[in-house]
Structures are given as structure tokens and as C-alpha cells.
Amino acid sequence: MDRDLYPERIAYPPGPIVTGRVVRLLGGYSREMKVQQPALVAVLTAATVARLIGTLVLSVLRAGTGSGSRRKFKELRKGPEFLVTPLRIRDTAGVLCEMEIHGHLPQSALEPADHIQVTVRPQKDAELAPRVERIVNITTGQLLTPRIPTLWSHLGPALVLQAMLGLLAVAVVVAILLGSVG
């Protein structure tokens, strides 16, 4: 049968664990991750409090405020992008299965014909192929766990630290106010 005229059907694997051989790693593309607005607003508000306190202290010391490279709310709201690589394997029953690897893997981690065991889970969108959580490459003995960015890695350690300092400053002010009332 001509594979160009009658391509083989591709199935999404039903189970959480699929064992088979790598047929093909397709070209990767980027997908944007959604950022929950309430969490972003809370972090930015707390960070702004810390930044205002820092600006006040610096202006009192006449050291200047510094320009810094702040990212805009719109940039932070957009969310990080992560690499999505479609993976096709032929399971032990001979069925061609497709799944998605989210995040980066080493270049030589998977080769065609490698015998692998994959742990997958369905995505929120039922139209998308299941997401790979873990790959055990039986051929090479490697355990592979792709990692995608999180909200906290997207915001960055500086902004998260600023937010924690802002929350601490607000807690101190509230404690002082409550202490003076009682």
C-alpha cells in the first residue's frame, strides 16, 4: 500500500504507561503558557510596595533610584513559551501512537528505534495529544523528565524576592497598627 496516498492512522495512547519503539521525533514548536491574572497581580502589588520602600530609602540617602529593567505587566501576562516536540512511537501492539514532549531534552536522548517506556497524561484540551511526563529509554538506560517553565521561573527570582519583601513590609505595618490600637 502507498503510504503517501494512504497514511497510517495515528492514535493517542489510552493508558498512563506506553511501551514501544521510537518511530520519529517531529520538529518542535513553541507554545505559550497561560498566566493566572490574580497571582500575577498579587505578586506585582507586593513587589511594588517593596520597590516604593526601596525608592524612598534611596532618595533619603541621595543615592538615586536607578533605572533597572522592569518588564511591563503586558509582557508578564503573556506568559513564558515552552518547546513542544511531537513524538511518535509504535507500541507493543503495533499501533502508531503520538504524544507531546513539553520542554527540552538532550539532543541525543531519543533516537529512532530506541525501546522506551513513556508515562503520559491527558491534556486539558482533549484535541491535543497526551503530554509526556517521564520517559525511560530502555535502550540507553536513561530516565528523562522534561521540564517546562513555571509562573515563578517566568517572573524571575528578583521580582519574587521583591514581592516577599513587600509582603513583609505590609505585615510589619499592619502589626504596628494593630499593636498601637490595642
Rank of each mutant, 00 (worst) to 15 (best):
R134W: 03
H115S: 08
L165W: 02
L144K: 06
E111H: 06
T140G: 12
P122F: 06
Q117E: 15
L144F: 09
V181R: 11
L40N: 05
A129Y: 02
R90V: 08
T150W: 07
L167M: 15
I17N: 06
G103R: 03
S67R: 09
P122K: 11
V170C: 11
T48D: 06
A50T: 08
Q123L: 13
E32A: 04
Y29C: 08
V160H: 02
E98A: 15
M33Y: 02
R3K: 06
V174Y: 04
R70F: 12
L155Y: 05
V95F: 00
R62D: 07
G68I: 01
V84A: 13
G28Q: 11
L61Q: 13
Q36D: 13
E100V: 11
R21T: 10
S153A: 01
P13W: 00
K78W: 01
G79K: 02
A113L: 12
A169H: 04
R77K: 15
R31E: 15
V84C: 08
S108L: 15
H115E: 09
L44G: 03
A39K: 15
P7H: 06
G54F: 00
T150C: 04
L87V: 09
L87N: 02
A129L: 02
L151T: 06
T48I: 01
V95Y: 04
R9L: 04
T48W: 07
C97I: 00
A126Y: 15
D114F: 04
